[in-house]
């Protein structure tokens, strides 16, 4: 699955971001970031708090206005309607609690919105139902389909939102720290289900992860950010440890060794 040859990747590029600048009205938070992600590939964004990772994801998904260009399969996202964009690219944002009591099934069905007709008499198709059940199955929440999301734990809710993102059936999934709130076991399972998803057809993933280990075990490419700029864009295995240490302000390898010692 991995494409070690840079040139080969460029040929099959599915998601292209060119000279992205974006922010919240003031000076840009994300400054001139470019990358490409090929079919079946995953890109992981790393960087310390406040370096602009989430802002970049928001810019890519069209939530924030950007300078620069984002395209999926050569098609610029800028000219698209919200619905068209929603069929290409989905953002799974950081966990947000909700007060409103939908069932798990209803929540995941909302992911089908971009594929359904709009308006008064829009109904759900058998295809919608199949996708919802399949997505729930993938995250292991099918047995809980009738529960209310307000009764779920944070980790369960996170998995429901992931299922909803799967049900949206986009070509690109953007993930903002999807493993927050998850037990170790579910972190691993989530990464596995993401890998499986991205392996099917013309899809790709861009994710922000807190856990460097998890990120590197999962990603083909790593985008390391510092103060809104690209510090490094590398194959995951080529990532420069010295650079990582400098940007995080910590001897990353030593820290991980220390935490491993506990079990020896």
């Amino acid at each position: 699955m991995r494409l070690h040859d840079g040139r080969e990747r460029r040929k099959k590029a599915l998601l292209k971001a060119e000279h992205i600048n974006c922010g919240y009205g003031g000076p840009p938070v994300v400054k001139d970031i470019s990358f490409q992600v090929g079919e079946g590939e995953s890109l992981c964004i790393l960087g310390p708090n406040g370096c602009g990772k989430t802002t970049l994801l928001r810019g890519l998904s069209g939530i924030l206005p950007i300078k620069g260009e984002v395209s999926v399969q050569g098609k610029d996202l800028k000219g698209m309607s919200a619905r068209q964009r929603g069929r290409k690219i989905a953002l799974m944002s950081q966990l947000a609690e909700t007060y409103f009591s939908y069932t798990v099934y209803e929540t995941v069905m909302l992911g089908r919105y971009v594929h359904q007709q709009r308006g008064l008499f829009a109904g759900r198709s058998p295809e919608d139902e199949r996708m919802v059940e399949e997505s729930l199955q993938k995250v292991g929440m099918l047995p809980q389909a009738d529960r209310l999301i307000t009764e779920l734990s944070g980790g369960q809710l996170q998995r429901v939102y992931l299922a909803r993102t799967f049900a949206q059936d986009p070509q690109v999934i953007l993930l903002d720290e999807p493993t927050n709130h998850l037990d170790l076991k579910y972190q691993v399972e989530l990464v596995e289900s993401l890998k499986e998803w991205v392996g099917q057809g013309d899809r790709c993933l861009v994710g922000v992860f807190h856990d460097i280990n998890l990120a590197l075990s999962f990603a083909d490419q790593v985008l390391l950010m510092e103060d809104g700029r690209t510090a490094a864009l590398e194959e995951a295995e080529n990532l420069d440890l010295a650079l990582l240490n400098r940007i995080y302000g910590l001897d990353v390898k030593a820290y991980m060794k220390d935490s491993l010692k506990r079990w020896e």
């Binding site: 928001r58 998904s61 939530i63 919200a82 619905r83 944002s93 947000a96 939908y102 209803e106």
Partner: peptide, 21 residues
């Protein structure tokens, strides 16, 4: 009705799900 369902999940999620908010 469906847009309203989605909007209860917040603006960012609604935008990410393809609603012209």
């Amino acid at each position: 009705a469906r847009e309203m369902d989605i909007m209860t999940f917040g603006e960012e999620q609604a935008l990410g799900m393809g609603v012209d908010l």
